[in-house]
């Protein structure tokens, strides 16, 4: 999902050649860049955009699953789902913490999400309409996220790479809990298996879109790869994901909804049919089924939490004043 963070990124940079060459030499030597280091404006802007969008995706990603907490079929599923949602919130916070090291405030990036200026992954603009969707989200959406995030652990920007290490450690439980939900459904009644197949049909293509546009269409890929922010191209990651996932679908006895899916002996990976990029761009531009509802939910949470933030700040101020008063006496 995080490749989408580069869409529309402004990586233009105006430093002199010598500065850029010195910076590139550090990157090429696999030196990590840390917050106070000198860095090109384009590098900083690209990271702010990508990390903020990644953080927003984690936060908005809690919404489709939150929808199912009260309707999880068993106490065990409910407890696992709540733990997963809490992790997603945590991941958002690790990432906000990383983006703040680049000189932007939490309030500023939050405001950009709430106003609709900043984007989040297109995948969360699809609705989770059955319990099987929760399985498919864990298996496919978190699976695709892991595929994207593992190379980000080696990203050239230190705080982002460190946040990714923590995220990746926690993410594998998410994928396994999703797959297990589908295993149960596939071993159940015909209706349950049909429900699992229906979820795969609806989540397969949007999951593949999470990797972003084709390399030939992606104008920001190359600069980002040169700066070692992104280390593997969109198409390569997508191919890896498909190749890892198709046998998992076969194990479930489900059919991947792509009649053109074919094993390629030469590349030892799967070739896929065409992706509906019109749908992708439509969702990115805000016309997905859930775009409006997701933003409304985030705005509602922010607005309704205002009194809590105000009360916390007022209490902190009052305690501080009391301490000063007591110290003076």
């Amino acid at each position: 999902m995080y490749s989408q963070g580069l869409i529309g990124a402004d990586d233009s940079t105006h430093e002199d050649e010598e500065f850029l060459a010195r910076f590139q030499a550090r990157i090429d030597a696999e030196e990590k860049i840390e917050p106070n280091d000198a860095m090109p404006q384009g590098y900083r802007k690209t990271l702010v955009r990508q990390i903020a969008q990644h953080a927003h995706s984690e936060i908005v990603g809690m919404l489709p699953e939150g929808n199912w907490v009260t309707r999880a079929p068993t106490l065990k599923r409910k407890a696992a789902l709540i733990a997963k949602i809490q992790d997603e919130g945590g991941h958002g916070l690790y990432l906000y913490s990383a983006v703040e090291t680049l000189g932007v405030s939490r309030e500023q990036v939050t405001q950009e999400l709430l106003s609709g200026k900043a984007k989040y992954s297109s995948i969360f603009n699809y609705p989770a309409i059955t319990w099987a969707d929760i399985g498919a989200i864990g298996w496919l959406v978190d699976g695709a996220a892991i595929m994207n995030q593992i190379p980000l652990c080696r990203c050239s920007y230190g705080p982002y790479a460190r946040a990714m290490v923590r995220v990746c450690k926690e993410e594998s439980f998410h994928q396994r809990q999703g797959y297990e939900i589908l295993m149960m459904l596939c071993a159940g009644s015909d209706e349950q298996k049909a429900m699992a197949q229906d979820a795969l049909n609806r989540w397969w293509w949007p999951s593949l879109m999470m990797f972003g546009p084709h390399d030939s269409e992606s104008t920001h890929g190359s600069q980002s790869e040169k700066w070692k922010i992104k280390r593997i191209s969109n198409d390569d990651l997508r191919r890896k994901f498909v190749t890892a996932t198709v046998p998992q679908a076969e194990f479930l006895g489900l059919e991947v909804p792509d009649p053109e899916l074919k094993w390629n002996e030469k590349t030892e990976s799967y070739d896929i049919g065409p992706i509906d990029w019109d749908e992708f761009w439509s969702v990115v531009k805000g016309n997905g089924v859930m775009n409006k509802e997701r933003l409304e939910a985030r705005n509602k949470a922010w607005d309704e939490g205002a009194w809590v933030r105000e009360a916390a700040n007022a209490f902190a101020l009052k305690s501080q004043e009391r301490e000063q008063l007591e110290a003076a006496q």
């Binding site: 809490q86 945590g90 913490s97 990383a98 939490r106 946040a163 926690e170 916390a312 209490f315």
Partner: peptide, 22 residues
């Protein structure tokens, strides 16, 4: 990492929730 909080007591609680779940 870092955390936002109005005071030190809530900062410890938030740090616990965000950074030490496992």
């Amino acid at each position: 990492g870092s955390i936002h909080s109005a005071d030190s007591e809530m900062a410890v609680q938030a740090a616990r929730d965000v950074y030490t779940r496992r």
